[in-house]
């Protein structure tokens, strides 16, 4: 059977890991290649680099990071952050990325997703969706109407008000609302050719209070492609909840987490051992540390 994936995520700014990885055996904790090597040794199922570099000139640095990582590790690497064009996608794949994730560019130009899927294949194309729970239904509906006028692709009237108001797609690190309903947007992205949805709850991101399970259930029910849960991962139990296929679970195919691994409290192996105890099918960790 297909196993659930555990994916450490590294934020990279101008070629350096932000929120450094606190491991004693790292020569340089700020070097993303070193961190990637460590997660490869821990047998992470995949690795994600999120490039948070603000200046576009410094973005070429990421290509070098990706190339050096591909030379070093033997696990699949997904790269996202600041991917604006088909050329950016190609550059990253040529540098050695296995999958490329796009977000803002998809919101601004949904046709890019279809074009990229046609050119490189859906299997390597991830669309990242940053979602925030709607608190002000009226403001959301106004933004949805504006989006509808400009792009013609928002749900007219927006999501229903009240506790079931739903989630709105955001860009720019969760700061910029788009007027797009997150579930409908994810469905559309999958239809256009996204091979995978990387779904981040901006409400939970960085809180370590657990993934947004209703959001995950909503999106996994709406799309026929794999969904990676992100935002809120803290204890192994919260990853288990995101991956759980039961009625209360998140139904996600993979769980992405950052701080739980970076601060050395848990290794990928220790998380997986706990997940196996909890009945989540993951690739069993090596019986002994590889080094």
């Amino acid at each position: 059977m297909l196993l659930k994936r555990i994916i450490p995520c590294l934020d990279v700014d101008r070629g350096r890991v932000v929120k450094g990885v606190r491991y004693v055996n790292l020569v340089d904790a700020g070097d993303p290649v070193e961190a990637a090597r460590l997660y490869d040794e821990q047998e992470a199922d995949e690795l994600t680099f999120l490039d948070i570099t603000a200046s576009s000139e410094a973005r070429r640095t990421m290509l070098d990071v990706v190339a050096r990582t591909a030379q070093t590790v033997c696990l699949p690497v997904c790269v996202g952050g600041g991917v604006r064009s088909l050329q950016d996608v190609r550059d990253l794949l040529n540098a050695g990325a296995d999958k490329v994730s796009i977000m803002t560019a998809a919101v601004e130009n949904p046709a890019l997703v279809a074009e990229a899927a046609m050119q490189i294949g859906s299997a390597n194309l991830v669309v990242a969706v940053d979602a925030r729970r709607v608190v002000d239904g009226e403001a959301f509906r106004a933004r949805a109407a504006a989006r509808q006028r400009q792009f013609g692709d928002a749900i007219p009237g927006g999501a229903a008000p009240g506790p079931e108001a739903g989630w709105e797609v955001h860009t720019h690190g969760g700061r910029r609302p788009t007027g797009l309903d997150a579930i409908a947007w994810a469905r559309r992205m999958a239809k256009l050719g996204a091979g995978e949805i990387l779904l981040t709850s901006m409400d939970r991101d960085g809180t370590r209070s657990g993934y947004d399970l209703p959001l995950l259930r909503g999106v996994t029910a709406a799309v026929p492609v794999p969904v990676i849960a992100s935002g809120g991962g803290g204890a192994p139990e919260s990853l288990a909840a995101a991956l759980d296929e039961g009625p209360q679970g998140g139904h996600a195919q993979a769980a992405l987490a950052a701080s739980i691994f970076h601060f050395g409290e848990q290794t990928v192996a220790s998380v997986k051992r706990r997940l196996l105890e909890l009945g989540i099918p993951v690739r069993p960790p090596a019986p002994f540390p590889p080094r």
């Binding site: 297909l2 659930k4 199922d45 026929p224 195919q253 690739r283």
Partner: peptide, 19 residues
Amino acid sequence: PQRTPEGALLRVPHIGWNQ
């Protein structure tokens, strides 16, 4: 196919570790 022989949703692409 997008469905298993039993009629359940099959997520395509097939991505990840399998035996």
